[in-house]
Design a binder for these strands. Structure first.
Lengths: 169, 169
DNA sequence: TAAAGAAACTTCATATTTCGAATTAATTAT
DNA sequence: ATAATTAATTCGAAATATGAAGTTTCTTTA
């Protein structure tokens, strides 16, 4: 029934709300703004990413991404490395300080989920995973994939591993 | 395995990302800011709600809630009615214009999900719903329940139905 | 191959948002 | 009564967001 889809969406909204509160709480503890934290997470997920991709992932304008990256770079949480194959671009990556900041605060949602998940029977775990992946496939569109699943830049990953002298931008 | 919990969280992040992009898209179409849209949805869910509860639900500071409500009231998307039982507070509710604005734009995620959900077998629907509700219960904490599930104000609902002269605030 | 076109990022000016702290008003507790 | 709480607001500072215009670097194409 239509009814069940609505129930699903309500549950989804509860999850969404929880995630939102979670990111705000984590941001507060780390001393980062919500957007800064989100960008930091995006960078962590991808290990290396360009400003454009950050803008798309975070859902902000390129100009805003520039400002956010600049701020994070000033805090020494991310570093920038000019791309050699396309010198208009550069790669943003987490510094050690950035990693440390990101993990300085526990992630309540993550922990809570993992903890409770571990306690349920195996077949239920499998069911939940299957359902979540199914739902993810239902709602995620190509344009809004998580940076980690976006492969439009992997052609350049080899470059990231190359031993360039790589001065900061 | 620990591994499976991580897979769940990854799927969850894909869903969250999709939802985030979705709310931004809907906001853009309606001409509302993301937060305004979220507040409007919260108000719709509860039919009547106080600024404090909006702040908690939306995850913003009280001062921010005031500003958001003021803006929405200026647009005539919400109305305010002073509470009689506690005259510091007031009730926020959607106007007809607010309802119209909220539904003027289609919700791609909602539609996409409903459409695909309708196509899958009954037992799978049931499985997905069960899984989603389970996950929602895992991650949502009492403090961050969706307004609709928060019953701390129902004692006052009768008041909302009472025939007070109810001038705007 | 030279010029036009497009893309990535920045800068700038401006508008909006957000929040903390202090404030007012109303309620509740002592 | 008086003190302590609570709900909401005001205000000022800082953060964020964006469009438009500009720079540099690719990419096309004539």
């Amino acid at each position: 029934m239509e009814d069940r889809a609505v129930s699903c969406l309500i549950a989804l909204r509860r999850v969404l709300s929880a995630a939102d509160h979670n990111v705000r709480a984590v941001a507060k503890v780390t001393g980062l703004s919500v957007q800064q934290l989100i960008v930091l997470r995006i960078v962590e997920d991808t290990t290396e990413i360009t400003p454009m991709m950050i803008a798309r992932s975070a859902g902000v304008a390129p100009a805003t991404a520039t400002a956010l990256i600049e701020k994070l770079a000033q805090m020494d949480y991310v570093s920038r490395r000019r791309s050699q194959s396309d010198r208009r671009r550069y790669w943003v990556s987490l510094t050690e300080a950035g990693k440390a900041a990101l993990h300085s605060a526990p992630d309540p949602l993550h922990q809570k989920f993992s903890e409770e998940f571990a306690r349920i029977p195996d077949y239920e775990q499998a069911m939940i995973l299957a359902a979540l992946e199914r739902v993810a496939n239902m709602v995620s569109t190509p344009g809004e994939t998580l940076p980690g699943t976006d492969e439009s830049h992997v052609l350049e990953v080899s470059e990231a591993l190359g031993a360039e002298t790589a001065g900061p931008v």
